[in-house]
Design a protein around this nucleic acid. Structure first.
Length: 903
RNA sequence: GGGUCCGUGGUCUAGUUGGUUAUGACGUGGCCUUUACAAGGCCGAGGCCGGUGGUUCGAAUCCGCCCGGACCCA
């Protein structure tokens, strides 16, 4: 394990290393390694390892194109995978293709010029699989070209029969547990796709419409029958008049309170409806009186349930008016709206019709306004277990932590159970038949799954309830999450096996669920965007929790959305979409990865060409620094281990600083804090290693070998390649291979651990300040940086570093003194430590400050006496700031911890 | 309409038990060809931390309100 600080092995294989020269050329090197990693199965999961890290990712829809969101998300996942592969021996990082949705269905129809209705579901799905395979291959290539270290031996497709079996088993298990039911109830319905949809499949759309004021005749008010009185209802949907079942008044609406308890007659259609008080009325809109129809919106459904109202279904599944609509039967809702408005006008009921902007709910797939219909659907219970699902959310660790609140609020706001059936022609069949006599549902046998009731026979000859022998197959299919909410179980090989002693296993209870690889579950990490927490993640947690009694993930890592350079979401309609292919034409993949590492997870962040350029420069710097290290250690295979005691002070200092960086960067990777890891690593490498240490090492090795320096250079260099490997996989692999000529990929080596070097960090820091001061001196005096300096005096603690300073800065004669120089000093200011002074002096701090500012103080030994003794401060409360004036020969500069005189 | 998150130099960003002198990068100005790198090195300019009121000896940080933005939900 502790290979970080281990030296290059003395007996390393024959030196196959090539020299490093010229510029780094990623266009040639990156594809070379991508092909190599795939061909060599570099990222194959080694199931025998003692430690492992497992990742379950939401599978992308493969029929779409790769976009920047994919690049960003996959890259973040890959940072985790590569880090843990090195730190924890092995990683399970599979890849899934979501090819089970409407997108794939439409794609197949388009590609093959066929209609799915012309085929059996099973046959059609076979064709989908064929078509999707081509797109999957293309997607695979795209992902591989981003250097995502997926184990390509572990992939799954949601349309595969074995995955469909898992979905159907899940349905059987939940039914057995009493978590599912079939019910005729109000449903959100897309009249274009003619299927139920869930809340999350609808989206807002602003529309212009007409607000119509319609007169209703009052039949009775709260006190009894009345004559010739009317009131006004404002509505955007007059076609729902035939479905009107009541009128509502707000309990605080004094002007209309007398109507409560009465009845009204609906114009044109004549039904008499009750007038009821309910505080859900929006008094601000229209007349304050509102009609309730079955159903115009979700509020109508609440009223229907709360007040036990009539059901008048005026619109059918294709948005056509039913017989309830009388003369308007057979019209579309749009036609009916126009006709009813015209007739209302003719009959004198239409008081006013004015323009109105409002928000409607549309189906996200087709953009058609949804209806609320009463239909028979399958549901998974959610509402009775909100508390358990909240606890499940708390059982997972969220990165960033604040994202848990999205999960929490989603659950707290749930009002409906989860409708899982869809009236689509293709999809995963719900494996159920119904008895023609008594309606009893007959579930498929677990052994016969995957099953399609439209093609397969039910598992019984007669109804177990009534004995009848004819059955009707369920035609509906599952919603889109049927497979995608089960990916942890699919990855772990979850399946049902009949008990050995079960003679005729025909129920879930005649067998058990087992995982082929139980060690994977629960998964260590679930990465995904914050936009899908409320449904995809939530659905996955619910199902896996119900099947296994455990949450499926230890950690959830949430990524933000990629914005354009102006911080706006990329969208086709705005025309600001940047395809990854365009980015990668201009920049190396490693540079794109550097950019992706540049923000805190969870935050949305903009595409920034500047960051890609910075990444490119880092690659070049890494390349050049490696070249120098290579040149300085011409016989690096022969460089042996050096005892810590034999290391020079400057080398020990560098290795101790490297230790600190290893620890810190490792901690950042553990916390998914990629941006901090990246920045810290970059600045240590660039500023400390390149700018400070390499300049010193260069001089120290100019007159020939120095084992201590060579050892340190190589140890640090090897460590940098490893620490950078998760971020910059191509260049680190290329350098690893060129410089060290080893067969093993850098990506499967062990992650560095600190070597435990002890050094005088203070002296090192002061020495670097001195070097910096001498550089500044040269710059300010117009001298080249390699100009010789005759005589320099250093006052400060730089023990062990004098030679290094002198060599690096070309100083002929360097004298060092531990004590301050004997030059004029005077107190220029007093710095107070307010964290002590504040609590101690409270409201007197102001007076204390102004006394010091006025110079009304004296220093008495360790004590600061202020305002003639009014305040006395201990040594720990203040620091004296001195200014020095130097009148001797040469020029003096001060640093934080030293004084430097150039003579 | 409700909720969540966010607002820090021109741009992106660090900065949570409150401590007075706010981090880094990009960009920008000046100087320098140092035997790895001018895609480099050194030095500098640039911020009343969205606004406002409050709590406190002390606020980028805590609280109220307002403005602006993003997302989720109605």
């Amino acid at each position: 394990m502790s290979d970080t600080q281990d030296p290059p092995t003395e007996e390393s294989p024959t030196d196959q290393s090539e020299s490093i020269d010229g510029e780094y050329d990623p266009s040639e090197i990156e594809p070379k390694w991508q092909d190599h990693w795939v061909a060599e199965d570099t990222y194959a999961y080694d199931g025998d390892a003692d430690t492992r890290f497992t990742i379950d990712t939401p599978p992308p829809t493969v029929s779409g194109n790769l976009h920047m969101g994919h690049l960003y998300q996959f890259t973040l996942q890959d940072f985790v995978a590569r880090y843990h592969r090195m730190a924890d021996d092995t990683v399970y990082f599979p890849f899934g293709y979501d090819d089970n949705g409407i997108a794939s269905e439409r794609l197949t129809e388009r590609e093959l010029d066929i209609r799915h209705q012309d085929f059996e579901r099973r046959e059609f799905q076979e064709k989908c699989r064929e078509v999707c395979t081509r797109y999957e291959d293309e997607f695979t290539e795209d992902v591989q070209s981003l250097a995502i270290s997926v184990d390509w031996d572990n992939t799954y497709k949601t349309i595969a029969p074995e995955v469909q079996r898992v979905s159907q088993l899940s349905f059987l298990d939940l039914y057995e547990q009493g978590r599912e039911y079939r019910q005729r109830a109000p449903t959100i319905w897309c009249p274009d796709c003619e299927t139920a949809i869930s809340q999350v499949e609808q989206e807002d759309e602003d529309k212009s419409t007409k607000f119509n004021d319609i007169a209703f005749d009052l039949v009775e008010d709260g006190d009894g029958p009345v004559e010739d009185e009317t009131f006004t209802i404002s509505t955007t949907r007059p076609e729902l008049l035939p479905a009107c079942v009541s009128v509502f008044v707000h309990p605080d609406d004094d002007a209309n309170q007398h109507l409560v308890g009465g009845t009204a007659r609906v114009p044109l259609f004549g039904q008499e409806v009750p007038i009821i008080a309910d505080e859900r009325v929006d008094m601000e809109t229209g007349s304050g009186l509102v009609m309730c129809c079955t159903f115009g919106d979700q509020n109508d459904i609440e009223w229907y349930q709360a007040h036990d109202l009539d059901l008048r279904l005026a619109i059918d599944e294709s948005a056509t008016m039913t017989e309830v609509a009388g003369d308007y039967e057979g019209m579309s809702t749009t036609q009916a709206r126009a006709a009813i408005i015209e007739d209302l006008d003719v009959e004198g009921y239409l008081l006013e019709s004015r323009d109105h902007e409002h928000t409607v709910q549309v189906h996200e797939r087709c953009g058609v306004e949804v209806e609320y219909l009463v239909t028979e659907q399958w549901y998974i219970k959610l509402l009775d277990k909100k508390d358990e699902y909240l606890q499940a959310g708390r059982d997972m660790e969220w990165f960033p932590e604040k994202m848990y609140s999205r999960y929490q609020h989603w659950i707290e706001g749930l009002e409906w159970d989860w409708c899982i059936s869809r009236q689509r022609d293709s999809g995963i069949p719900i494996p159920v038949w119904y008895c023609d006599e008594c309606g009893e549902p007959i579930l498929a046998d677990p052994e016969q799954l995957p099953a399609d009731p439209l093609s397969d026979d039910p598992p019984v000859d007669g109804c177990p309830d009534c004995g009848h022998d004819t059955f009707t197959p369920e035609e509906d299919v599952f919603d889109t999450w049927a497979t995608s909410s089960l990916t942890p179980l699919v990855n772990a090989g979850w399946d049902w096996h009949a008990d050995a002693d079960a003679a005729e296993p025909n129920s879930i209870t005649d067998g058990t669920f087992e995982m082929e690889m139980p060690e994977l579950y629960p998964f260590d990490l679930r990465p995904q965007g914050h936009d899908i927490i409320s449904f995809w993640l939530f659905h996955t947690v619910v199902k896996c929790y119900e099947h296994t009694d455990e949450v499926p993930f230890e950690n959830v890592m949430v990524n933000g959305m990629v914005l354009d350079e102006n911080r706006e979401a990329m969208s086709k309609s705005k025309g600001n979409v940047i395809p990854p292919s365009e980015v990668l034409e201009n920049f190396p993949v490693d540079a794109a990865r550097y950019w992706a590492a540049g923000t805190s997870i969870g935050d949305d962040f903009p595409y920034k060409e500047g960051d890609l350029e910075a990444g490119e420069r880092l690659l070049q710097k890494l390349w050049n620094a490696s070249r120098l290290v290579d040149q300085l250690t011409p016989a690096h295979d022969a460089v042996g281990d050096v005892d810590e005691a034999d290391l020079s002070a400057v080398d020990r200092w560098l290795l101790a600083e490297l230790d600190a960086t290893i620890d810190s960067v490792t901690a950042k990777f553990e916390d998914y804090a990629f941006s901090k890891a990246r920045n810290e690593l970059r600045s240590f490498f660039w500023n400390t290693f390149c700018d400070d240490y390499l300049e010193i090492a260069k001089q120290r090795l100019s007159d020939g070998g120095d084992p201590s320096t060579e050892y340190t250079l190589l140890t640090a260099h090897r460590t940098f390649l490893k620490l950078f490997a998760p971020f910059l996989p191509h260049i680190t692999e290329e350098l690893w291979s060129r410089v060290y000529g080893e067969d093993e990929s850098v990506h499967t080596t062990d992650w560095p651990v600190a070597g435990g070097y002890e050094a005088d960090l203070e002296a090192g820091e002061t020495a670097m300040e001195v070097v910096s001061a001498l550089r500044r001196y040269k710059t300010e005096n117009g001298l080249p940086l390699n100009a010789d300096l005759e005589h320099v005096e250093v006052y400060g603690h730089v023990e062990g570093f004098a030679a290094a300073i002198a060599e690096a800065m070309h100083v002929d004669r360097l004298e060092t003194f531990e004590d301050a120089p004997d030059i004029t000093t005077e107190v220029s200011d007093i710095d107070l430590d307010y964290s002590i002074v504040g609590p101690e002096f409270g409201s007197d701090v102001g007076a204390l400050d102004s006394a010091i500012e006025a110079g009304d103080y004296e220093i008495d030994g360790d004590t600061l006496v202020v305002a003639g003794g009014e305040f006395e401060l201990d040594a720990e409360m203040f620091a004296v700031e001195e200014s020095r004036t130097y009148s001797g020969e040469g020029e003096m500069t001060e640093t934080e911890n030293a004084v430097v005189v150039v003579r």
